[in-house]
Amino acid sequence: MPNAYWVVLFEDEPEMNDHRRKHRDAHMGFLRANENRIKIAGGMRPMPGAPYCGDMWIVRGCDFEDVVDIVQKDPYYNPQYRRFRIFSWGKSLDKPVTL
């Protein structure tokens, strides 16, 4: 399934915010180095300005095992403070997406 899209949803414990601060630069470098596969990535908050509670990625061109491998190589990955779920995803309309 090399052209598959995947959604990765991350759920963080409050302690993850300290981990984020310490590893932010390495995480951003990791995202840039993998932008051919991680098409969209960003933090989630319950409300604007609130502390982060997770992240979401859209990943393309991998199989499920590759997505797990990418997640676990991310400097933000810390199983003590972060859980993740991976979903197969398909766009309803086959057209370019601009955010």
Rank of each mutant, 00 (worst) to 15 (best):
N36I: 03
M47W: 10
L9S: 11
Y76D: 02
G42H: 10
R32W: 07
I58G: 02
G42A: 09
C53E: 13
Y77D: 02
F64P: 01
A41V: 04
G54Y: 11
Q80H: 14
Q72D: 13
E13K: 05
P79Y: 04
L99F: 06
E11A: 04
M16G: 00
I40E: 07
P14N: 12
G29Y: 05
Y76Q: 05
D94M: 03
M28F: 13
P79K: 08
R45S: 15
P14E: 13
D69R: 15
M56Q: 06
R60H: 10
F30T: 00
E13R: 04
W6Q: 05
G61Y: 01
D12Q: 08
N3F: 08
D55C: 11
K22L: 08
F87Y: 13
E11V: 11
F10C: 03
K22G: 13
P51N: 07
Y76L: 06
K22I: 05
K22F: 05
P75M: 08
N78H: 12
P51W: 07
G49S: 13
R82N: 06
G29A: 15
F84V: 03
T98G: 03
K95L: 15
P14H: 14
S92V: 00
A33F: 05
R32G: 10
N3P: 01
I58V: 15
P48T: 05
I86Q: 02
I58T: 02
M44L: 13
K95S: 12
D63N: 14
N36R: 08
V59H: 03
